[in-house]
Design a protein around this nucleic acid. Structure first.
Length: 480
RNA sequence: GGCCCCAUCGACUAGCGGUUAGGUCACCGCCCUUUCAAGGCGGCGGCAGGGGUUCGAAUCCCCUUGGGGUCACCA
Protein backbone atom coordinates (compact mmCIF):
# COMPACT_ATOMS: atom_id res chain seq x y z
CA UNK A 1 0.00 0.00 0.00
CA UNK A 2 1.11 3.53 -0.75
CA UNK A 3 1.77 5.58 2.38
CA UNK A 4 2.74 9.24 2.21
CA UNK A 5 3.18 11.86 4.86
CA UNK A 6 3.90 15.44 5.55
CA UNK A 7 6.02 16.33 8.53
CA UNK A 8 5.48 19.97 9.39
CA UNK A 9 7.20 21.52 12.36
CA UNK A 10 4.98 23.63 14.59
CA UNK A 11 6.97 26.82 14.51
CA UNK A 12 4.49 29.41 13.35
CA UNK A 13 1.62 30.14 10.99
CA UNK A 14 0.46 27.32 8.71
CA UNK A 15 2.68 27.77 5.68
CA UNK A 16 1.56 27.63 2.04
CA UNK A 17 4.57 25.42 1.40
CA UNK A 18 3.11 22.91 3.82
CA UNK A 19 -0.22 23.09 2.02
CA UNK A 20 1.60 22.56 -1.27
CA UNK A 21 3.40 19.46 -0.02
CA UNK A 22 0.21 18.22 1.58
CA UNK A 23 -1.61 18.52 -1.75
CA UNK A 24 0.84 16.32 -3.64
CA UNK A 25 1.15 13.81 -0.83
CA UNK A 26 -2.59 13.62 -0.33
CA UNK A 27 -3.45 13.30 -3.99
CA UNK A 28 -0.80 10.71 -4.67
CA UNK A 29 -1.79 8.56 -1.70
CA UNK A 30 -5.51 8.81 -2.38
CA UNK A 31 -5.34 8.00 -6.04
CA UNK A 32 -3.47 4.83 -5.12
CA UNK A 33 -5.92 3.90 -2.43
CA UNK A 34 -3.22 4.58 0.13
CA UNK A 35 -2.81 6.50 3.34
CA UNK A 36 -1.80 10.08 3.99
CA UNK A 37 -0.21 10.74 7.37
CA UNK A 38 0.50 13.95 9.23
CA UNK A 39 3.29 13.80 11.74
CA UNK A 40 4.30 16.78 13.81
CA UNK A 41 8.05 17.32 14.01
CA UNK A 42 8.51 19.29 17.18
CA UNK A 43 12.00 18.24 18.13
CA UNK A 44 13.27 21.80 18.19
CA UNK A 45 12.06 23.03 21.54
CA UNK A 46 13.41 26.53 21.00
CA UNK A 47 11.22 27.19 17.97
CA UNK A 48 8.11 25.50 19.29
CA UNK A 49 4.86 27.43 18.95
CA UNK A 50 1.97 26.06 21.03
CA UNK A 51 -0.87 27.06 18.68
CA UNK A 52 0.88 26.06 15.52
CA UNK A 53 0.07 22.35 15.54
CA UNK A 54 -3.66 22.93 15.93
CA UNK A 55 -3.67 25.54 13.19
CA UNK A 56 -1.74 23.32 10.77
CA UNK A 57 -4.23 20.52 11.32
CA UNK A 58 -7.14 22.94 10.91
CA UNK A 59 -5.65 24.26 7.70
CA UNK A 60 -5.59 20.79 6.21
CA UNK A 61 -9.24 20.23 7.11
CA UNK A 62 -10.13 23.61 5.65
CA UNK A 63 -8.42 22.69 2.42
CA UNK A 64 -10.07 19.29 2.37
CA UNK A 65 -6.80 17.40 2.70
CA UNK A 66 -7.79 15.27 5.67
CA UNK A 67 -5.09 12.94 6.87
CA UNK A 68 -5.84 9.31 7.59
CA UNK A 69 -3.55 9.38 10.59
CA UNK A 70 -2.57 12.43 12.60
CA UNK A 71 -2.19 13.63 16.18
CA UNK A 72 -5.93 14.35 16.15
CA UNK A 73 -7.13 11.24 14.36
CA UNK A 74 -4.67 8.85 15.92
CA UNK A 75 -3.84 5.64 14.11
CA UNK A 76 -1.97 2.37 14.51
CA UNK A 77 1.47 3.95 14.46
CA UNK A 78 1.07 6.71 17.01
CA UNK A 79 1.90 8.88 18.67
CA UNK A 80 2.10 11.29 15.75
CA UNK A 81 3.99 13.98 17.60
CA UNK A 82 7.70 13.41 17.79
CA UNK A 83 8.20 14.86 21.24
CA UNK A 84 5.99 12.02 22.45
CA UNK A 85 8.17 9.42 20.81
CA UNK A 86 11.44 10.06 22.61
CA UNK A 87 11.82 6.50 23.99
CA UNK A 88 11.52 5.15 20.46
CA UNK A 89 14.37 7.33 19.25
CA UNK A 90 16.53 6.52 22.23
CA UNK A 91 16.02 2.84 21.65
CA UNK A 92 17.03 3.22 18.03
CA UNK A 93 20.06 5.32 18.82
CA UNK A 94 21.09 2.58 21.23
CA UNK A 95 20.95 0.09 18.37
CA UNK A 96 23.21 2.21 16.18
CA UNK A 97 25.63 2.76 19.03
CA UNK A 98 25.85 -0.96 19.68
CA UNK A 99 26.37 -1.68 16.03
CA UNK A 100 29.16 0.83 15.97
CA UNK A 101 27.26 2.78 13.30
CA UNK A 102 27.09 5.85 15.51
CA UNK A 103 29.22 7.35 18.22
CA UNK A 104 29.01 9.73 21.14
CA UNK A 105 30.74 13.08 20.72
CA UNK A 106 31.59 15.28 23.65
CA UNK A 107 32.53 18.49 21.86
CA UNK A 108 31.03 21.59 23.38
CA UNK A 109 29.25 24.06 21.10
CA UNK A 110 32.12 26.47 21.74
CA UNK A 111 34.68 23.91 20.65
CA UNK A 112 32.73 23.24 17.50
CA UNK A 113 32.45 26.90 16.70
CA UNK A 114 36.17 27.34 17.21
CA UNK A 115 36.99 24.35 15.03
CA UNK A 116 34.75 25.72 12.31
CA UNK A 117 36.42 29.08 12.48
CA UNK A 118 39.85 27.55 12.22
CA UNK A 119 38.83 25.41 9.29
CA UNK A 120 37.43 28.47 7.62
CA UNK A 121 40.63 30.40 8.21
CA UNK A 122 42.66 27.53 6.84
CA UNK A 123 40.60 27.92 3.69
CA UNK A 124 39.15 24.44 3.78
CA UNK A 125 36.31 23.76 1.40
CA UNK A 126 34.42 21.28 3.50
CA UNK A 127 33.47 22.81 6.77
CA UNK A 128 31.93 19.75 8.36
CA UNK A 129 32.58 18.22 11.74
CA UNK A 130 36.20 17.25 12.32
CA UNK A 131 35.20 13.78 13.57
CA UNK A 132 37.23 14.10 16.74
CA UNK A 133 35.28 11.38 18.52
CA UNK A 134 34.70 9.06 15.60
CA UNK A 135 37.34 6.61 16.78
CA UNK A 136 37.11 7.34 20.47
CA UNK A 137 37.07 4.12 22.54
CA UNK A 138 33.40 3.15 23.00
CA UNK A 139 33.93 1.96 26.59
CA UNK A 140 35.42 5.32 27.49
CA UNK A 141 32.54 7.10 25.78
CA UNK A 142 29.99 4.99 27.63
CA UNK A 143 31.73 5.72 30.90
CA UNK A 144 31.63 9.47 30.32
CA UNK A 145 28.03 9.29 29.21
CA UNK A 146 27.07 7.29 32.27
CA UNK A 147 28.76 9.92 34.39
CA UNK A 148 26.30 12.40 32.95
CA UNK A 149 28.67 14.26 30.71
CA UNK A 150 26.70 16.18 28.08
CA UNK A 151 27.18 14.92 24.56
CA UNK A 152 25.53 14.24 21.23
CA UNK A 153 25.37 11.12 19.09
CA UNK A 154 26.63 11.29 15.53
CA UNK A 155 26.25 8.92 12.63
CA UNK A 156 29.39 7.35 11.23
CA UNK A 157 29.04 7.96 7.52
CA UNK A 158 31.32 6.23 5.05
CA UNK A 159 34.42 8.25 4.21
CA UNK A 160 34.80 7.02 0.66
CA UNK A 161 32.69 5.91 -2.23
CA UNK A 162 29.50 7.37 -3.56
CA UNK A 163 25.91 7.46 -2.52
CA UNK A 164 23.26 7.57 -5.18
CA UNK A 165 19.87 9.05 -4.51
CA UNK A 166 17.34 7.64 -6.93
CA UNK A 167 14.96 10.52 -7.22
CA UNK A 168 11.70 9.77 -8.97
CA UNK A 169 11.80 13.02 -10.92
CA UNK A 170 15.53 13.45 -11.47
CA UNK A 171 16.82 9.94 -11.82
CA UNK A 172 20.07 9.04 -10.09
CA UNK A 173 21.75 11.89 -8.24
CA UNK A 174 25.29 11.10 -7.23
CA UNK A 175 27.02 12.33 -4.09
CA UNK A 176 30.61 11.80 -3.10
CA UNK A 177 30.71 10.36 0.40
CA UNK A 178 33.78 12.45 1.11
CA UNK A 179 31.51 15.50 1.06
CA UNK A 180 29.20 14.01 3.67
CA UNK A 181 29.35 14.82 7.35
CA UNK A 182 28.96 12.86 10.58
CA UNK A 183 25.83 14.77 11.43
CA UNK A 184 24.23 14.77 14.84
CA UNK A 185 21.33 12.34 15.19
CA UNK A 186 20.68 12.82 18.90
CA UNK A 187 21.10 16.22 20.50
CA UNK A 188 22.52 16.90 23.96
CA UNK A 189 19.03 17.67 25.23
CA UNK A 190 17.96 14.15 24.44
CA UNK A 191 15.88 15.10 21.40
CA UNK A 192 16.65 13.53 18.05
CA UNK A 193 17.45 15.70 15.07
CA UNK A 194 15.12 15.76 12.10
CA UNK A 195 17.25 13.29 10.20
CA UNK A 196 17.05 10.48 12.71
CA UNK A 197 13.47 11.09 13.81
CA UNK A 198 12.13 11.32 10.28
CA UNK A 199 13.82 8.13 9.12
CA UNK A 200 12.81 6.14 12.18
CA UNK A 201 9.23 7.34 11.96
CA UNK A 202 8.93 6.89 8.22
CA UNK A 203 10.09 3.33 8.65
CA UNK A 204 7.87 2.56 11.61
CA UNK A 205 4.88 4.20 9.98
CA UNK A 206 5.38 2.32 6.75
CA UNK A 207 5.93 5.35 4.56
CA UNK A 208 6.55 4.18 1.01
CA UNK A 209 6.96 7.48 -0.83
CA UNK A 210 8.79 10.45 0.59
CA UNK A 211 7.46 13.39 -1.37
CA UNK A 212 9.07 16.49 0.05
CA UNK A 213 10.60 19.79 -0.97
CA UNK A 214 13.84 19.97 -2.90
CA UNK A 215 15.65 21.61 -0.01
CA UNK A 216 15.97 18.07 1.39
CA UNK A 217 17.67 16.61 -1.63
CA UNK A 218 21.21 17.23 -0.41
CA UNK A 219 20.56 15.64 2.96
CA UNK A 220 19.07 12.53 1.39
CA UNK A 221 22.42 10.70 1.20
CA UNK A 222 22.67 11.12 4.94
CA UNK A 223 19.15 9.76 5.32
CA UNK A 224 20.09 6.81 3.18
CA UNK A 225 23.00 6.05 5.48
CA UNK A 226 20.73 6.13 8.49
CA UNK A 227 18.43 3.64 6.78
CA UNK A 228 21.37 1.44 5.82
CA UNK A 229 22.73 1.51 9.35
CA UNK A 230 19.45 0.00 10.49
CA UNK A 231 19.25 -2.32 7.52
CA UNK A 232 16.00 -0.77 6.34
CA UNK A 233 14.66 -0.40 2.84
CA UNK A 234 14.65 3.01 1.19
CA UNK A 235 11.34 4.64 0.31
CA UNK A 236 10.78 6.15 -3.12
CA UNK A 237 12.32 9.61 -3.03
CA UNK A 238 10.57 12.41 -4.81
CA UNK A 239 11.81 15.94 -4.31
CA UNK A 240 9.48 18.62 -5.54
CA UNK A 241 10.50 22.14 -6.53
CA UNK A 242 10.45 24.88 -3.96
CA UNK A 243 7.87 27.63 -4.17
CA UNK A 244 9.58 30.97 -4.60
CA UNK A 245 9.27 34.64 -3.74
CA UNK A 246 8.93 37.08 -6.63
CA UNK A 247 12.70 37.61 -6.35
CA UNK A 248 13.18 33.87 -6.98
CA UNK A 249 14.48 33.00 -3.54
CA UNK A 250 12.85 30.27 -1.47
CA UNK A 251 9.36 31.31 -0.37
CA UNK A 252 9.70 33.04 2.97
CA UNK A 253 7.50 35.03 5.26
CA UNK A 254 9.95 37.92 5.26
CA UNK A 255 9.26 38.59 1.61
CA UNK A 256 5.79 37.17 1.04
CA UNK A 257 2.62 36.40 2.87
CA UNK A 258 3.12 32.69 3.46
CA UNK A 259 0.37 32.20 6.01
CA UNK A 260 -2.60 30.16 4.88
CA UNK A 261 -4.53 31.62 7.82
CA UNK A 262 -3.92 35.04 6.38
CA UNK A 263 -5.21 34.08 2.94
CA UNK A 264 -8.22 32.54 4.58
CA UNK A 265 -8.86 35.72 6.54
CA UNK A 266 -8.69 37.74 3.34
CA UNK A 267 -11.37 35.56 1.82
CA UNK A 268 -9.34 33.35 -0.45
CA UNK A 269 -11.38 30.20 -1.01
CA UNK A 270 -9.86 26.84 -0.10
CA UNK A 271 -10.77 25.46 -3.52
CA UNK A 272 -9.03 28.33 -5.25
CA UNK A 273 -5.89 28.09 -3.16
CA UNK A 274 -5.73 24.37 -3.74
CA UNK A 275 -6.35 24.79 -7.44
CA UNK A 276 -3.67 27.45 -7.65
CA UNK A 277 -1.14 25.28 -5.82
CA UNK A 278 -2.06 22.49 -8.20
CA UNK A 279 -0.83 24.62 -11.08
CA UNK A 280 2.53 25.19 -9.44
CA UNK A 281 5.02 22.93 -11.23
CA UNK A 282 2.17 20.65 -12.22
CA UNK A 283 -0.43 20.91 -14.93
CA UNK A 284 -3.45 19.02 -16.18
CA UNK A 285 -2.64 16.93 -19.25
CA UNK A 286 -5.37 18.71 -21.21
CA UNK A 287 -4.19 22.16 -20.15
CA UNK A 288 -7.23 23.00 -18.06
CA UNK A 289 -6.33 25.55 -15.43
CA UNK A 290 -9.47 25.50 -13.36
CA UNK A 291 -9.89 22.12 -11.76
CA UNK A 292 -11.13 20.63 -8.52
CA UNK A 293 -9.32 18.37 -6.09
CA UNK A 294 -11.48 15.51 -7.38
CA UNK A 295 -10.39 16.16 -10.94
CA UNK A 296 -6.79 16.34 -9.84
CA UNK A 297 -7.24 13.02 -8.11
CA UNK A 298 -8.13 11.51 -11.46
CA UNK A 299 -5.35 12.97 -13.56
CA UNK A 300 -2.44 13.54 -11.20
CA UNK A 301 0.89 11.92 -12.05
CA UNK A 302 3.97 12.59 -9.97
CA UNK A 303 6.03 12.30 -13.13
CA UNK A 304 4.30 15.35 -14.54
CA UNK A 305 5.84 17.62 -11.93
CA UNK A 306 8.28 19.99 -13.62
CA UNK A 307 11.55 20.68 -11.92
CA UNK A 308 11.70 24.43 -12.37
CA UNK A 309 10.78 26.20 -9.14
CA UNK A 310 7.67 28.36 -9.62
CA UNK A 311 7.12 31.86 -8.27
CA UNK A 312 4.08 32.15 -6.03
CA UNK A 313 2.10 34.88 -7.78
CA UNK A 314 -0.50 36.61 -5.64
CA UNK A 315 -1.97 38.32 -8.67
CA UNK A 316 -2.90 35.07 -10.32
CA UNK A 317 -4.13 33.54 -7.09
CA UNK A 318 -6.53 36.46 -6.74
CA UNK A 319 -7.64 36.10 -10.33
CA UNK A 320 -8.32 32.43 -9.78
CA UNK A 321 -10.21 33.19 -6.59
CA UNK A 322 -12.35 35.63 -8.58
CA UNK A 323 -12.91 32.96 -11.19
CA UNK A 324 -14.26 30.65 -8.49
CA UNK A 325 -16.42 33.43 -7.12
CA UNK A 326 -18.04 34.29 -10.42
CA UNK A 327 -18.04 30.99 -12.28
CA UNK A 328 -17.49 27.98 -10.08
CA UNK A 329 -19.45 28.47 -6.87
CA UNK A 330 -23.22 28.47 -6.89
CA UNK A 331 -24.92 31.67 -5.82
CA UNK A 332 -26.24 30.01 -2.68
CA UNK A 333 -22.82 28.71 -1.78
CA UNK A 334 -21.20 32.06 -2.37
CA UNK A 335 -23.78 33.87 -0.25
CA UNK A 336 -23.09 31.38 2.51
CA UNK A 337 -19.35 32.03 2.38
CA UNK A 338 -19.75 35.74 2.51
CA UNK A 339 -21.73 35.64 5.73
CA UNK A 340 -18.88 35.26 8.22
CA UNK A 341 -17.15 38.21 6.60
CA UNK A 342 -20.23 40.40 6.90
CA UNK A 343 -20.62 39.35 10.47
CA UNK A 344 -17.05 40.17 11.29
CA UNK A 345 -17.59 43.63 9.83
CA UNK A 346 -20.67 44.04 12.01
CA UNK A 347 -22.99 44.20 9.01
CA UNK A 348 -26.44 42.65 8.91
CA UNK A 349 -28.87 41.83 6.12
CA UNK A 350 -32.65 41.84 6.20
CA UNK A 351 -33.15 38.51 4.47
CA UNK A 352 -31.42 35.61 2.75
CA UNK A 353 -33.01 36.69 -0.43
CA UNK A 354 -31.70 40.21 -0.21
CA UNK A 355 -28.19 38.98 0.53
CA UNK A 356 -28.28 36.66 -2.45
CA UNK A 357 -29.41 39.42 -4.77
CA UNK A 358 -26.66 41.71 -3.58
CA UNK A 359 -24.10 38.97 -4.02
CA UNK A 360 -25.41 38.34 -7.49
CA UNK A 361 -25.06 41.90 -8.70
CA UNK A 362 -21.67 42.23 -7.02
CA UNK A 363 -20.35 38.92 -8.19
CA UNK A 364 -18.17 40.09 -11.04
CA UNK A 365 -16.82 42.91 -8.90
CA UNK A 366 -14.89 41.25 -6.13
CA UNK A 367 -12.04 38.76 -6.03
CA UNK A 368 -11.93 37.91 -2.34
CA UNK A 369 -14.70 37.54 0.20
CA UNK A 370 -13.32 40.42 2.22
CA UNK A 371 -13.45 42.57 -0.88
CA UNK A 372 -17.16 41.89 -1.11
CA UNK A 373 -17.64 43.46 2.29
CA UNK A 374 -15.41 46.42 1.47
CA UNK A 375 -17.19 47.16 -1.78
CA UNK A 376 -20.77 46.46 -0.72
CA UNK A 377 -21.02 48.39 2.50
CA UNK A 378 -23.78 50.69 1.20
CA UNK A 379 -26.07 47.70 0.70
CA UNK A 380 -25.98 46.90 4.39
CA UNK A 381 -25.52 50.11 6.27
CA UNK A 382 -26.18 53.83 6.17
CA UNK A 383 -22.70 54.38 7.52
CA UNK A 384 -20.94 53.92 4.19
CA UNK A 385 -18.15 56.33 3.29
CA UNK A 386 -18.45 59.08 0.66
CA UNK A 387 -15.48 58.90 -1.63
CA UNK A 388 -13.69 62.02 -2.78
CA UNK A 389 -14.44 61.53 -6.46
CA UNK A 390 -18.02 60.61 -5.77
CA UNK A 391 -18.50 63.80 -3.82
CA UNK A 392 -17.20 65.80 -6.76
CA UNK A 393 -19.70 64.11 -9.08
CA UNK A 394 -22.41 64.75 -6.58
CA UNK A 395 -21.65 68.45 -6.60
CA UNK A 396 -21.54 68.52 -10.39
CA UNK A 397 -25.07 67.25 -10.54
CA UNK A 398 -26.36 68.90 -7.41
CA UNK A 399 -29.04 70.89 -9.18
CA UNK A 400 -30.58 67.71 -10.64
CA UNK A 401 -31.02 66.02 -7.31
CA UNK A 402 -34.30 67.66 -6.20
CA UNK A 403 -35.95 66.87 -9.52
CA UNK A 404 -34.71 63.30 -9.41
CA UNK A 405 -36.05 62.97 -5.91
CA UNK A 406 -39.41 64.24 -7.01
CA UNK A 407 -39.66 61.90 -9.97
CA UNK A 408 -38.51 58.86 -8.08
CA UNK A 409 -40.96 59.65 -5.34
CA UNK A 410 -43.78 59.64 -7.86
CA UNK A 411 -42.62 56.37 -9.38
CA UNK A 412 -44.94 53.47 -8.59
CA UNK A 413 -42.03 51.16 -7.82
CA UNK A 414 -38.29 50.71 -8.21
CA UNK A 415 -38.41 47.98 -10.82
CA UNK A 416 -35.95 48.39 -13.70
CA UNK A 417 -38.84 48.60 -16.15
CA UNK A 418 -39.97 51.67 -14.28
CA UNK A 419 -36.73 53.35 -13.38
CA UNK A 420 -34.90 52.90 -16.66
CA UNK A 421 -37.37 54.86 -18.80
CA UNK A 422 -37.77 57.31 -15.97
CA UNK A 423 -34.07 58.16 -15.76
CA UNK A 424 -33.39 57.99 -19.48
CA UNK A 425 -36.46 60.07 -20.18
CA UNK A 426 -35.34 62.62 -17.62
CA UNK A 427 -31.89 62.92 -19.19
CA UNK A 428 -33.41 63.31 -22.59
CA UNK A 429 -35.83 65.95 -21.39
CA UNK A 430 -32.95 67.88 -19.88
CA UNK A 431 -30.93 67.40 -23.04
CA UNK A 432 -28.02 65.80 -21.24
CA UNK A 433 -26.31 62.46 -21.44
CA UNK A 434 -27.60 59.63 -19.31
CA UNK A 435 -24.27 59.46 -17.52
CA UNK A 436 -24.70 63.01 -16.34
CA UNK A 437 -27.75 61.89 -14.45
CA UNK A 438 -26.52 58.48 -13.40
CA UNK A 439 -23.21 59.52 -11.93
CA UNK A 440 -24.46 62.08 -9.42
CA UNK A 441 -27.29 59.76 -8.53
CA UNK A 442 -24.86 56.88 -8.09
CA UNK A 443 -22.70 59.02 -5.85
CA UNK A 444 -25.71 60.04 -3.80
CA UNK A 445 -26.90 56.49 -3.32
CA UNK A 446 -23.63 54.72 -2.69
CA UNK A 447 -20.88 57.21 -1.97
CA UNK A 448 -19.00 55.50 -4.76
CA UNK A 449 -18.50 55.67 -8.49
CA UNK A 450 -17.84 51.98 -8.82
CA UNK A 451 -21.05 50.09 -8.33
CA UNK A 452 -23.42 47.66 -10.01
CA UNK A 453 -25.81 48.99 -12.62
CA UNK A 454 -28.07 51.84 -11.60
CA UNK A 455 -31.32 49.94 -12.07
CA UNK A 456 -30.14 47.05 -9.93
CA UNK A 457 -29.06 49.58 -7.36
CA UNK A 458 -32.42 51.32 -7.25
CA UNK A 459 -34.28 48.06 -7.03
CA UNK A 460 -32.14 46.57 -4.28
CA UNK A 461 -31.97 49.72 -2.20
CA UNK A 462 -35.71 50.22 -2.47
CA UNK A 463 -37.68 53.41 -2.73
CA UNK A 464 -37.47 54.35 0.89
CA UNK A 465 -33.69 54.17 1.13
CA UNK A 466 -33.26 55.78 -2.28
CA UNK A 467 -35.31 58.79 -1.30
CA UNK A 468 -33.71 59.07 2.09
CA UNK A 469 -30.20 58.98 0.63
CA UNK A 470 -31.15 61.51 -2.00
CA UNK A 471 -32.46 63.83 0.68
CA UNK A 472 -29.26 63.46 2.58
CA UNK A 473 -27.25 64.21 -0.53
CA UNK A 474 -29.29 67.31 -1.21
CA UNK A 475 -28.63 68.48 2.32
CA UNK A 476 -25.01 67.77 1.90
CA UNK A 477 -24.55 69.69 -1.36
CA UNK A 478 -26.54 72.56 -0.01
CA UNK A 479 -24.46 72.76 3.15
CA UNK A 480 -21.19 73.06 1.27
C1' G B 1 33.23 29.15 -1.87
C1' G B 2 32.38 23.26 -2.01
C1' C B 3 28.49 20.00 -3.25
C1' C B 4 23.63 19.34 -5.49
C1' C B 5 19.37 20.81 -8.47
C1' C B 6 17.29 23.72 -12.26
C1' A B 7 16.71 26.79 -17.09
C1' U B 8 10.29 28.10 -22.96
C1' C B 9 7.10 35.20 -23.05
C1' G B 10 7.59 39.82 -16.87
C1' A B 11 4.82 35.41 -13.96
C1' C B 12 2.40 30.24 -14.31
C1' U B 13 2.78 26.68 -18.08
C1' A B 14 1.99 23.19 -22.98
C1' G B 15 5.77 21.00 -25.87
C1' C B 16 8.84 15.14 -24.89
C1' G B 17 13.32 15.40 -33.12
C1' G B 18 9.73 18.04 -38.10
C1' U B 19 4.52 23.25 -34.60
C1' U B 20 3.56 30.04 -38.15
C1' A B 21 6.46 27.63 -30.43
C1' G B 22 0.08 26.98 -27.97
C1' G B 23 -2.73 28.55 -23.43
C1' U B 24 -3.42 31.42 -18.65
C1' C B 25 -2.19 35.87 -15.40
C1' A B 26 -0.33 40.76 -15.89
C1' C B 27 0.09 44.77 -19.47
C1' C B 28 -1.86 47.61 -23.98
C1' G B 29 -5.82 48.52 -27.60
C1' C B 30 -10.93 47.82 -29.40
C1' C B 31 -16.04 46.19 -28.53
C1' C B 32 -20.06 46.11 -24.92
C1' U B 33 -21.62 50.14 -21.53
C1' U B 34 -24.99 54.66 -16.83
C1' U B 35 -19.82 53.94 -13.50
C1' C B 36 -16.65 49.99 -12.03
C1' A B 37 -16.01 45.25 -13.07
C1' A B 38 -16.98 40.90 -15.72
C1' G B 39 -17.16 39.23 -20.75
C1' G B 40 -15.76 39.18 -26.16
C1' C B 41 -12.02 40.35 -29.86
C1' G B 42 -7.06 41.75 -30.95
C1' G B 43 -1.97 43.02 -29.57
C1' C B 44 2.84 43.07 -26.96
C1' G B 45 6.18 39.35 -25.40
C1' G B 46 9.81 33.63 -25.03
C1' C B 47 13.03 28.62 -26.34
C1' A B 48 19.92 32.21 -21.78
C1' G B 49 24.58 31.75 -24.97
C1' G B 50 28.06 28.63 -27.59
C1' G B 51 29.47 24.07 -29.47
C1' G B 52 28.18 19.29 -31.08
C1' U B 53 24.62 14.75 -32.72
C1' U B 54 21.02 14.66 -36.78
C1' C B 55 18.42 15.40 -43.27
C1' G B 56 16.11 18.26 -39.27
C1' A B 57 16.64 20.59 -32.77
C1' A B 58 12.92 24.33 -27.66
C1' U B 59 13.21 19.01 -27.49
C1' C B 60 19.38 14.60 -27.19
C1' C B 61 24.88 15.45 -25.44
C1' C B 62 28.86 18.85 -23.71
C1' C B 63 30.62 23.61 -22.09
C1' U B 64 29.61 28.55 -20.46
C1' U B 65 26.32 31.79 -18.15
C1' G B 66 22.35 32.60 -14.96
C1' G B 67 19.07 31.25 -10.93
C1' G B 68 18.06 28.30 -6.71
C1' G B 69 19.02 24.88 -2.68
C1' U B 70 22.34 23.07 0.93
C1' C B 71 26.60 23.04 3.93
C1' A B 72 23.40 23.87 12.59
C1' C B 73 23.08 20.01 18.81
C1' C B 74 16.62 24.14 12.74
C1' A B 75 13.40 21.54 10.30
Amino acid sequence: MVVTRIAPSPTGDPHVGTAYQALFNYVFAKQHGGKFIVRIEDTDRSRYNPTSERRILEMLEWLGLSPDESPLKGGPNGPYVQSQRLPIYHQHVRILLEKGAAYRAFDTPEELARAREEALRAGKQEMGYNRRYRDYPPEEAERRAAAGEPHVVRLKVPLEGKTIVHDLLRGPVEFDNATLDDKVILKADGYPTYHLAAMVDDHLMGVTHVIRAEEWLTSTPFHIHILRAFGWKEPVWCHTPLLRNPDKSKLSKRKMDTSVDSYRAQGILPEALLNYLGTMAWSMPDGREIFSLEEMLVHFRLERIRLGAPVFDLEKLRWMNGKYIREVLSLDDLAERVKPFLERAGLTYPSEDYLKQVVEVMRARFETLQEFVDKSMYFFSEAYPMQEKALAKLREGAQLLPELHERLQKAPNMLPETTEPLLRGYAEAKGIKAAQVMQPLRAALTGSLETPGMFDLLFLLGKERVLRRLERAIERTRAS
